[in-house]
């Protein structure tokens, strides 16, 4: 029984790695262009908010730069993971129709979901790492500890699963663009990235705590500042990850008969 489970797990991981491999090869060929486009927004945020607007500001005993950098890392991980998994899948599914080829292969749904989500995770990690390197060079004083890395990984997985789910449910490229504009863009600014949620009115605070990025920002910030990571936020992150994973699984099962 355990042998057969181990075989299935091994085969499933091989299938997922095959799916990831193709996307990785593509990323490798376009890495330069990818890095350039993916780093522009976070660097602009860093310059505008970290150096410009926030210069001299103090946030609960830390500089604004130290406060804002983890938030920008969270939003970079969110957007690149979501787009890395979702946008590519949406194009593959609706334009190239190459997703049909995957549906027709003897690949398990779980392997397919994980394989497709992993490329979002890789893209999220690559972009976040590049941004972290820049931020460290600029003296942001980040602490890269296991808690930070785990929080970053969970963020990338969460938004990759969300990207897969959105890409599979979207009926057109426009649908996915609308999802990004209506859900991701507001979250970029409101998810505890650029300002502390302590400063907002209670009603708004409740709404903002319902956003997954809020908890990513809180956890990444606490870890980066070498403070204890709030358990409730970390649990919320795991819950969102599970929710988006199940949503992706549901969307995938709906795609195939």
């Amino acid at each position: 029984m355990s042998n057969s489970l181990a075989t299935r797990l091994w085969m499933g991981s091989q299938d997922a790695s095959t799916i990831l491999w193709a996307d990785l090869m593509i990323l490798k060929r376009r890495l330069g262009r990818y890095m350039l486009t993916t780093l522009i927004s976070p660097l602009l945020y860093l310059v505008a908010f970290g150096w410009g607007l926030g210069r001299g500001m103090n946030m609960n005993g830390t500089t604004y730069l130290q406060f804002v950098v983890p938030g920008i890392i969270a939003l970079t991980a969110m957007t690149t993971s979501f787009n890395g998994a979702g946008t590519r899948l949406n194009v593959d599914r609706l334009y190239f129709r190459s997703f049909d080829e995957l549906l027709m292969a003897p690949t398990g749904t779980l392997s397919l979901l994980i394989g497709k989500a992993l490329i979002g995770v890789v893209r999220g990690l690559v972009s976040s790492s590049a941004f972290i390197a820049v931020a460290l060079l600029m003296g942001s004083g980040l602490h890269l500890n296991p808690a930070f890395i785990i929080a970053l990984l969970v963020t990338c997985f969460s938004f990759s699963f969300l990207g897969v789910m959105a890409a599979l449910l979207a009926r057109s490229h426009q649908d996915l663009a609308t999802f990004s504009s209506v859900i991701l863009l507001p979250m970029t600014f409101l998810g505890g990235t650029f300002f502390s949620l302590d400063q907002v009115p209670l009603a708004l605070k409740v709404a903002l705590y319902a956003l997954p990025l809020t908890h990513s920002s809180i956890c990444l910030r606490a870890a980066a500042l070498n403070q204890p990571v709030p358990e409730s936020s970390f649990l919320a992150m795991l819950l969102f990850m599970l929710l988006f994973f199940l949503g992706g699984l549901f969307a995938l099962r709906r795609s195939s008969i």
């Binding site: 299938d15 193709a22 080829e101």
Partner: peptide, 28 residues
């Protein structure tokens, strides 16, 4: 089963060898 569509979706950014390796991997 093997299905070749009218415009089979291959990966334009992969080489011929890589496309074949990919499809081979999908079928174990």
């Amino acid at each position: 089963i093997g299905y070749m569509t009218q415009h089979k979706a291959l990966y334009p950014d992969l080489t011929l060898q890589e496309n074949l390796e990919f499809f081979a991997g999908l079928y174990g």
